[in-house]
Amino acid sequence: MKANSFEELLIWQKAIEIGVEIYSLSDQVPLKSDYKSRDQLIGCAISISNNIAEGFEYNNKLQFIRFLGYAKGSAGELRSQLALLVKVNRVSEETYLKLKEELIVLSRQIKALMTYLKNKKE
């Protein structure tokens, strides 16, 4: 299947879902008043979908692969921030484990697309 827009990409759709979850989490106590952590979490979360979209829109395979790498990096950064926030009791262990699993799956999917694109003949 060839995607005609980034909105058709399952990885972008999943990144948006994770972003929505992070916004919801950030609106709850205690993160609601922890502005620094809240901003960091939201920034990382939206960076995943934004990098997928931006890379796709360049309409250049190498640029897309590069931006997919950035998106994958942002997913890792978000996992790291969530791990820290669980340790300082800003995020529950249950929420952390759920989001961690979703982010690991998303990272694998991004990596698989990167590999596919690298190996794809023009």
Rank of each mutant, 00 (worst) to 15 (best):
E21P: 10
K98H: 08
I46L: 09
M114I: 11
F64G: 00
A53I: 11
Y23D: 14
K121P: 02
G55F: 02
Q13T: 09
G73P: 06
M114S: 13
L10M: 13
T95L: 12
T115D: 11
V20F: 11
I11S: 03
S92T: 12
E101M: 15
A83E: 05
E17K: 15
W12H: 07
N89G: 04
A83N: 08
S80C: 12
K14N: 13
L62N: 14
K72N: 14
R108Q: 15
V91C: 05
K32D: 01
T95I: 12
K87A: 10
L78M: 04
E94G: 04
D27A: 13
N119I: 00
S74G: 04
L85R: 00
L68W: 06
K118A: 06
E77H: 05
L113S: 00
V91H: 09
E21G: 05
E7A: 09
N59H: 14
D39M: 01
K120V: 03
L97A: 05
Q40V: 10
L9R: 15
V105R: 03
I11M: 03
Y116K: 12
S107E: 09
Y70V: 12
Q13D: 09
E93Y: 10
K111Y: 14
V20E: 15
K72R: 15
R38G: 06
G43L: 04
